[in-house]
Design a protein around this nucleic acid. Structure first.
Lengths: 143, 143
DNA sequence: AATATTGTTGAGACTCATTCTCAACAGAAT
DNA sequence: ATTCTGTTGAGAATGAGTCTCAACAATATT
């Protein structure tokens, strides 16, 4: 977690009238310092492991706040859990997921992005967001 | 449900050593005769309404079988429920979902399909399946 | 300083889609 | 007839996430 991350966190939470509590700070720090795509339970357990006591409910609540305020993005790969990743650089991307080992790779394809817009205007929809996941077998798993 | 649908169902289930029971037939008929994208509970209730008694558990189990054997496809729009649609013509498509009224439109864009393959080979993945959803506001809801 | 107000927390109860368990059953095979 | 195997229904169990509520903490008001 850089000083800039921290400053941004504080300023957004202040602006939203959300208190900057030790628990929220710890959850935010945990997110800043990992590049993984984790579900809330894993984040909760990571904090536990570092002997930081934040309740499960608070982790869930804080992940919601971080998501609503654009500090993390989340994805749903169809197993009923949200997977969160920090979104400090705010660069949009989609995901390629290995169906065997679960490894997740990020991709961004401007052409696909554009074609999505085209599809929407074809059907008279205003695109708000999208979810695009490719499930396959990574090189190691395919061998 | 056409005779052809029925014949296909019987032949696949027989080939898989799955019994052709009245309950399974009723669930299959219910799927053939609707173009909606429904969750299991709705399918269960639709059967109830027609005074056909199949237990919830059997509906869930049968939806799994129909899915595994390619009679239906299913989608996950992030609310924790599978939505099933019959897939009798087996033509692949993705979905455009109105975030206000929930209306679901199907789309297919061969260019996007091709670009997905390109992304995968870029990362040395073998594409197995994908999930692509556009969330937006339909014309009626945007006004 | 004392008090009131408001938001936050933790523990555990609750929800809800789905899966599991298990006894009863049904049809095919012996 | 009897055994074997797969299927069913009812209700219990699961598990991610949400809700409730009393205790608490920081801020605002008197």
């Amino acid at each position: 977690m850089t000083n800039q991350n921290l400053a941004q966190f504080k300023s957004v939470f202040k602006a939203e009238n959300l208190k900057i509590t030790p628990q929220r700070l710890e959850v935010f720090r945990e997110m800043c310092d990992s590049d993984e795509h984790r579900e809330s339970e894993k984040i909760y357990l990571a904090l536990r492991k570092r002997n930081i006591h934040v309740s499960r409910a608070t982790v869930f609540r804080t992940m919601d706040l971080l998501y609503e305020n654009g500090f993390v993005s989340r994805m749903d790969i169809g197993d009923g859990k949200w997977r969160y990743e920090h979104w400090l650089d705010c660069s949009h991307h989609d995901h390629l997921i290995c169906i065997r080992c679960g490894r997740i790779v990020e991709f961004f394809d401007p052409e696909i992005e554009k074609l999505q817009e085209d599809v929407c205007s074809r059907f008279d929809y205003q695109l708000v967001r999208h979810s695009h996941q490719l499930f396959g077998m990574c090189k190691e798993c395919a061998d």
